[in-house]
Simulated scan of single mutants.
Amino acid sequence: MKQIKVLVSSCACNQKFASLVEAVVKNNQIDATVEKVDDIMEVMQYNVMSLPALVIDGQVVARGQKNEKELLEILK
């Protein structure tokens, strides 16, 4: 099972991105857990300069907004 973390800030677009990641995982039956991380100290551990960012199994795999198709390619 993959462990997915969505690194976000409190802005609405970041929150929408986190919801989209959850929907893509659910709708495509991807074997993964999704965690939204908005604690700045935890986000800083991943050394990302822009949010949102996507972390799978401890590795940063994407930065910035992605659409549903792009997310599906990354998550599969």
Results as ranks from 00 to 15, higher is better:
residue 12 A to L: 09
residue 1 M to A: 15
residue 9 S to Y: 02
residue 64 G to T: 01
residue 47 N to V: 01
residue 61 V to L: 04
residue 39 D to P: 07
residue 10 S to W: 12
residue 10 S to H: 13
residue 17 F to V: 01
residue 45 Q to H: 10
residue 3 Q to F: 07
residue 41 M to R: 10
residue 13 C to A: 15
residue 25 V to G: 09
residue 61 V to I: 07
residue 32 A to C: 06
residue 14 N to I: 00
residue 43 V to G: 04
residue 11 C to M: 10
residue 5 K to D: 04
residue 61 V to P: 08
residue 71 L to Y: 05
residue 7 L to M: 03
residue 71 L to R: 06
residue 7 L to F: 00
residue 23 A to I: 00
residue 46 Y to A: 04
residue 73 E to H: 12
residue 75 L to C: 11
residue 55 V to P: 15
residue 68 E to T: 07
residue 37 V to M: 05
residue 2 K to R: 15
residue 57 D to T: 02
residue 76 K to A: 13
residue 36 K to Y: 03
residue 6 V to L: 02
residue 10 S to A: 11
residue 48 V to D: 08
residue 21 V to G: 01
residue 65 Q to G: 07
residue 26 K to H: 11
residue 20 L to A: 03
residue 29 Q to K: 14
residue 39 D to G: 02
residue 59 Q to H: 13
residue 48 V to M: 03
residue 54 L to T: 01
residue 43 V to L: 01
residue 70 E to S: 08
residue 62 A to I: 01
residue 21 V to T: 03
residue 30 I to S: 11
residue 67 N to D: 15
residue 49 M to H: 08
residue 26 K to I: 00
residue 65 Q to Y: 07
residue 4 I to W: 05
residue 50 S to Y: 03
residue 60 V to W: 14
residue 38 D to L: 09
residue 4 I to K: 05
residue 6 V to F: 03
residue 64 G to M: 00
residue 16 K to G: 12
residue 11 C to H: 11
residue 60 V to R: 07
residue 38 D to N: 15
residue 6 V to R: 10
residue 13 C to I: 06
residue 45 Q to F: 03
residue 40 I to T: 10
residue 29 Q to P: 11
residue 10 S to E: 14
residue 3 Q to C: 09
residue 41 M to K: 14
residue 24 V to C: 05
residue 63 R to W: 01
residue 61 V to T: 03
residue 28 N to Q: 12
residue 69 K to F: 10
residue 29 Q to A: 13
residue 60 V to T: 10
residue 56 I to S: 07
residue 60 V to Y: 11
residue 67 N to E: 06
residue 16 K to P: 05
residue 12 A to H: 12
residue 5 K to T: 01
residue 27 N to W: 03
residue 60 V to D: 12
residue 40 I to Y: 13
residue 52 P to N: 01
residue 4 I to F: 05
residue 41 M to E: 14
residue 14 N to D: 15
residue 39 D to H: 14
residue 59 Q to G: 06
residue 45 Q to L: 09
residue 36 K to V: 12
residue 32 A to Q: 05
residue 57 D to H: 02
residue 12 A to D: 13
residue 56 I to H: 00
residue 25 V to K: 10
residue 53 A to T: 01
residue 51 L to E: 01
residue 31 D to P: 14
residue 66 K to P: 11
residue 13 C to H: 12
residue 68 E to H: 00
residue 32 A to E: 08
residue 65 Q to S: 08
residue 62 A to P: 00
residue 28 N to R: 11
residue 12 A to S: 14
residue 33 T to Q: 15
residue 26 K to T: 10
residue 46 Y to P: 08
residue 47 N to I: 00
residue 76 K to N: 15
residue 46 Y to D: 12
residue 25 V to T: 06
residue 28 N to F: 11
residue 54 L to K: 00
residue 29 Q to L: 13
residue 49 M to P: 04
residue 3 Q to I: 07
residue 5 K to I: 02
